[in-house]
Computed example of a mutant assay.
Amino acid sequence: MTEFWQQEMAKTVDELETPMVLVHRAKLEQNVREMAEFAREHGVRLRPHLKTHKTWEIAELQLAAGAVGLTCAKLGEATVFLERGARDVLVAYPLVGPKIRRLFELMAQYPQAVLQTLTAELAHAQALSEAAVAQGVQLKVWLKVDSGLKRVGVEPGERAAQLFREMAQLPGLDVQGFLTHAGHAYGAQTPEQVRAIGEYEAHCLLETMALVQSQGEIQSQKQNASSLAVSVGSTPTVRISGAVSGVTEIRPGNYVFCDATQIRLGVVRPERVSLRVLSRVVSRPAGDRIVIDAGAKTLALDRGAHGSDALQGYGLIVGHEHAVIERLSEEHGVVRIPTDSHIRVGDVLEIIPNHSCPVANLTDHLTVLNHDGSLSVWSVIARGQTI
């Protein structure tokens, strides 16, 4: 374990139970504060994605810093946070089948809250419209545009503009504007590529909106086309796309923790990563190999977000740049080390995971290193939500 973190901690290393998912509160709060300051500086709303941390304590920090609401991917996640007091939640995922019914049940259960969702296809928008009319409510909905990830989303430009016009005519829908996620930035090889992706992320939405605005008043809505919102997400690109004039909302998630992927992309330096995994060496069966007690059930099997395979191993061992976590089984991590390494059985290693989001989702709680060196426990209340 690095001397910096060890000096701040009231407990000794020998007292630590491992593997431990540890969050440095001061670094976490700095990350939260700086993103909120960025949003204020550029006049955009901040609606952070909960998928990274899934904890109420961090959501409270984000809301207190100025977030206008929260973003999630599952109705189960939305339910957990609505139960805790969230009042504006965007479910940024296409809800189909019985999930449409469940969405409106949640709206009825929490009438004081605003629930929003997205669509990228006319048939799906029509299904949402029919359900909204049947319930006698107006549903806030966003049009998801594909800015290059090639996942969910309609092609930007005239195709998206035409779909927006058709959606605007549907009763029961209050179309907010355009939304995208440039997740393919995680596969970028250089900061220049990240910048190009972030710029296109914003401009493809703004150009699509301009096509809609050229049609003038949207007859079936009370709002004018000029008031449409433009929402971008993705931690690697948010400080690029979020700074483009005309963008009105940002939805980063990973920024609260960051990870080895953000380091590789040049988004942050290692010292800004607020989440680490502490793991103890349980065996050194050979001079060039150790085994640690953090396996796939702790570190996850990601080699990088969105299918990127650009990272070596399954996390960065801080202070041991030549050590590589080569293999993971469920409870074991096999690490290649130099034969002259001084690592011994019983040593606690500090690991920056490749992707912090699944690491948080794999644990029941986060151990938080407070400002005074004490440790607190924050429950990951929305982990494991599958529906």
Results as ranks from 00 to 15, higher is better:
Glu3His: 12
Phe4Ile: 14
Gln6Ala: 15
Gln7Tyr: 07
Gln7Cys: 06
Thr12Met: 07
Thr12Lys: 13
Glu15Ile: 10
Glu15His: 04
Glu17Trp: 06
Val21Trp: 03
Leu22Glu: 05
Leu22Arg: 05
Arg25Lys: 14
Lys27Ala: 14
Glu29Phe: 06
Arg33Gly: 11
Glu34Leu: 13
Ala39Arg: 00
Ala39Ser: 07
Arg47Gly: 02
Thr55Glu: 03
Trp56Arg: 09
Glu60Asp: 13
Leu61Tyr: 14
Gly69Phe: 04
Leu70Asn: 00
Cys72Met: 01
Ala73Pro: 00
Thr79Leu: 14
Val80Gln: 10
Arg87Glu: 13
Asp88Tyr: 14
Val89Pro: 01
Val89Lys: 00
Ala92Pro: 00
Ala92Tyr: 00
Pro98Ala: 13
Glu105Ile: 10
Pro111Phe: 07
Leu118Asp: 05
Thr119Asn: 11
Ala120Pro: 02
Ser129Trp: 09
Val133Ala: 12
Gln135Arg: 15
Gln138Trp: 05
Lys144Phe: 01
Lys144Thr: 04
Asp146Arg: 07
Leu149Ile: 11
Leu149Ser: 14
Leu149Gly: 05
Val152His: 15
Gly153Ile: 05
Val154Arg: 05
Gly157Gln: 14
Gly157Cys: 10
Phe164Trp: 08
Glu166Gln: 15
Met167Asn: 06
Leu170Arg: 06
Gly177Leu: 12
Thr180Ile: 06
His181Ala: 02
His181Leu: 07
Gly183Asp: 01
Tyr186Glu: 09
Gly187Thr: 07
Gly187Asp: 11
Thr190Asp: 12
Glu192Met: 05
Val194Gln: 09
Ala196Lys: 06
Glu201His: 02
Ala202Ile: 04
Leu206Arg: 01
Leu211Trp: 08
Gln215Leu: 13
Gly216Phe: 03
Gln221Met: 12
Ala225Tyr: 02
Ser226Tyr: 10
Val232His: 01
Val232Trp: 02
Thr237Met: 00
Thr237Pro: 00
Thr237Ile: 01
Arg239Phe: 12
Ser241Gly: 06
Ser241Lys: 04
Ala243His: 08
Gly246Met: 14
Val247Glu: 10
Thr248Arg: 15
Gly253Leu: 00
Gly253Asp: 02
Asn254Thr: 14
Val256Thr: 13
Cys258Val: 02
Asp259Cys: 08
Arg264Thr: 00
Gly266Trp: 07
Gly266Ser: 07
Arg272Leu: 06
Ser274Thr: 08
Val277Tyr: 09
Leu278Asp: 08
Val282Tyr: 03
Val282Gln: 06
Gly287Val: 03
Gly287Ile: 06
Leu299Phe: 11
Leu299Gly: 10
Gly304Met: 01
Gly307Glu: 08
Asp309His: 14
Leu311Pro: 05
Gly315Ser: 07
Gly315Gln: 09
Ile317Arg: 05
Glu321Leu: 12
His332Met: 12
Gly333Cys: 13
Asp340Phe: 10
Arg344Lys: 15
Val345Trp: 01
Val348Pro: 03
Val348Ala: 08
Glu350Asp: 11
Ile352Thr: 11
Ser356Ile: 01
Ser356Pro: 03
Leu362Ile: 03
Asp364Tyr: 09
Asp372Cys: 04
Ser374Thr: 14
Ser374Pro: 08
Ser379Gln: 12
Ser379Ala: 12
Ile381Cys: 15
